[in-house]
Write a protein that binds this DNA or RNA. Structure first.
Length: 391
DNA sequence: ATGTCC
């Protein structure tokens, strides 16, 4: 009989941080995988589909499922210069980011200036779209400067405006993971070199997408697009010290600057990351979900009105025509970002540089009265069809 | 997370 040793699991969270036991259990399941060396759980750890979210997992074997389907997902920060305007007014000027930029039909769109001629993997579908789930584009104000020297090297001062873009590789990453799981399920990549080549395309595509999104929004708000001061991917695999380092909802922590996203109703933290080997060179990527989407929807409907959720306690405006998503992504569905940051600082993984406060958080276009009428009519038609079917 | 499972 052989007894396989499990990899080490280290949690970078204080007892004050509530970590769901299901997520810790997932870390131990991952630790038992063949070839696994070390699992580091970040303070925003929460259960994911097949793998925990908020974890960095080092292994001698490459497991595509530990990166997930949104390969290349990340958060970028773009400075933006705007005249004075109220959040409500700016919110109405955001472009429709569910509508993809078509390289032919939209050939004249100035956002392409950031793309030059290279579209990774030639994947044109969904370019310039933000996606769903926890993805967003946010116009935010730099609120506090925690490290003046570092902030000034990034060109950031209190009061400056930035666009924070959280998005990934849309259909491309999903296609890459599906091609793997259809043959190998949760097993390792049979051809790591081939997987990594496709994966690297998705990572580049995700970064390009964030730049395109920021450029679209900047133009729509009457500003010039800028280079990102921060752009870190939190779903990827890197070869680090000769092993595969899988990050799933964990940002690179080896000397890079990372925006750790709060919620649409709380601050976000730009941090200088300096996580070592024990943390698998990684830091948290956000506040982390406290409630499942189903719980957030059920409890949110009892607790909040749509109007409350569209205007947050910090006075920012949420653009989200999808009612369900509005509840699922409510600030109360997330952990306290201050505790996540305190845990990163307490474990010496990162140092705060600046905080940002949201002005406008864009998820998906608001519905026009015409669309609301149309949706209601088609729902009634569906229901009456179903009713007729029963008779 | 995802041109998504009715």
């Amino acid at each position: 009989m052989t007894v396989k040793d499990s990899a080490t699991v280290t949690m970078f969270a204080s007892p004050a941080s509530w970590i769901e036991s299901d997520a810790v259990a997932q870390c131990h399941q991952v630790a038992a995988l063949e070839g696994m060396i070390h699992v580091a759980g970040m303070p925003d750890l929460h259960p994911g589909k097949g793998a925990p979210i908020g974890a960095a997992m080092a292994s001698s074997v490459l497991y595509p499922l530990l990166v997930g389907s949104d390969i290349g997902c990340g958060i970028a920060v773009f400075p933006i210069r705007l005249g004075r305007a109220a959040p409500e007014k700016l919110a109405r000027r955001f472009p429709d980011l569910d509508r993809a930029l078509d390289p032919e039909r939209d050939a004249d769109d100035p956002a392409w200036d950031v793309a030059r001629d290279d579209i990774p993997a030639g994947h044109e579908e969904g370019l310039g779209t933000v996606g769903r789930g926890n993805h967003f584009v946010e116009l935010a104000r730099v609120a506090t400067i925690e490290d003046p020297g570092h902030a000034s090297r990034l060109g950031l001062s209190a009061g400056d405006l930035v666009l924070v873009v959280h998005s990934g590789s849309r259909g491309l990453g999903e296609r890459i993971l599906r091609a793997h799981t259809e043959v190998h399920g949760a097993g390792p990549a049979a051809d790591p070199v081939a997987y990594l080549a496709a994966h690297d395309d998705a990572v580049r595509w995700g970064s390009l997408n964030r730049r395109l999104i920021a450029a679209r929004v900047a133009h729509a708000l009457g500003a010039e697009p800028t280079e990102a001061v921060v752009d870190q991917c939190h779903n990827l695999v890197e070869i680090h010290d000769g092993v595969y380092l899988h990050r799933k909802g964990a940002a690179p922590g080896d000397g890079r600057d990372v925006l750790v996203a709060g919620t649409r109703g709380t601050a976000s933290y730009l941090v200088a990351a300096h996580a070592g080997a024990a943390a698998n060179h990684s830091v948290a990527h956000g506040a982390g979900r406290k409630m499942s989407r189903a719980d957030a929807l059920r409890r949110g409907r009892a607790k909040h009105t749509v109007e409350q959720l569209r205007r947050t306690p910090v006075g920012s405006v949420v653009v989200c025509g999808d009612r369900q998503l509005l509840f699922e992504e409510a600030p109360t569905a997330y952990k306290r970002i201050e505790q996540v940051i305190a845990d990163l600082v307490g474990h010496d993984l990162a140092t705060p540089v600046a905080t940002t406060i949201p002005l406008v958080t864009y998820k998906t276009p608001d519905l026009s009265d015409r669309q609301i009428r149309h949706n209601r009519e088609s729902r009634q038609n569906r229901e009456s069809r179903r009713e007729r079917g029963r008779r």
